[in-house]
Amino acid sequence: MIKKLLKYAFLFLVLAFIYTPILVLVIFSFTDTIIIGTWNGFSFNLYKKLFADSDIMKIVRDTIFLAVGAGAISTILGTMGAIGIFYSKKRTAATLNTLGNIPIINAEIVTALALALMFAMVLTFANKTILSLIIGHVVISVPYVVLSVLPKLKQMDANTYEAALDLGATPIKALFTVVIPEILPGILSGFMLALTLSLDDYIVTAFTKPDTFDTISTYVYNAVKVPTHSSLPALRALSSIIFLVIIIAVVVMNLKSKNKENR
């Protein structure tokens, strides 16, 4: 019993370390203060300021558009890639897997500099444009899509595709009516991963983005470095919204999948 309590106490301590800064930020998003620690009474002023700040609102929109766009491209490219790898010869598949693993294992700064250098020196027409930014985000997320789709292909019953062909379906039709529905969970989780990686990214974004374009990451990074930046209190409100949305989404999604497993 005591042992069990000690275990819970230890876990609780680590969780407190993880969640205290988040909680403090959320609490101080409900008071109109520049510095955390001074309480100027409960108010939604920072939230009002946030939604009235057209710069930040534009950045939030751009960040989401970029994530959805790059995520969609990664998902399509990665799903096709996974199918291709699955039906390729062993050596081709191994080569593609090794190449795809590089952005996962490589230090992000190396990926970022390598891309920036190539755009600056070779593909100059796309240097520091939306195109280079999207390509950068696809590079860091597409391998994860492949990794989420491949296991689903391995679990699939290989005969159903052949059966569809025997029954007269064209290869394209068989692909869309038989293969895609089977691997859809993998495709969806790949898309979610790509979305998160894009929303989370700072380094590749900073190295490939146009000078006038900002994502939440780059904007906050630059704002935080200036201690007197006027947007900091409003960013507290933005952070609080993002923290709560994600914590709730992750918990709900996991509880849902737990229920499914139990049934």
């Binding site: 800064p21 930020l25 989370d200 700072y202 939440i216 935080v224 993002i242 923290f243 989404a249």
Partner: peptide, 11 residues
Amino acid sequence: WINFVLRMNAL
């Protein structure tokens, strides 16, 4: 799953 720049700012 939370943007790490925001988490670093919170910290």
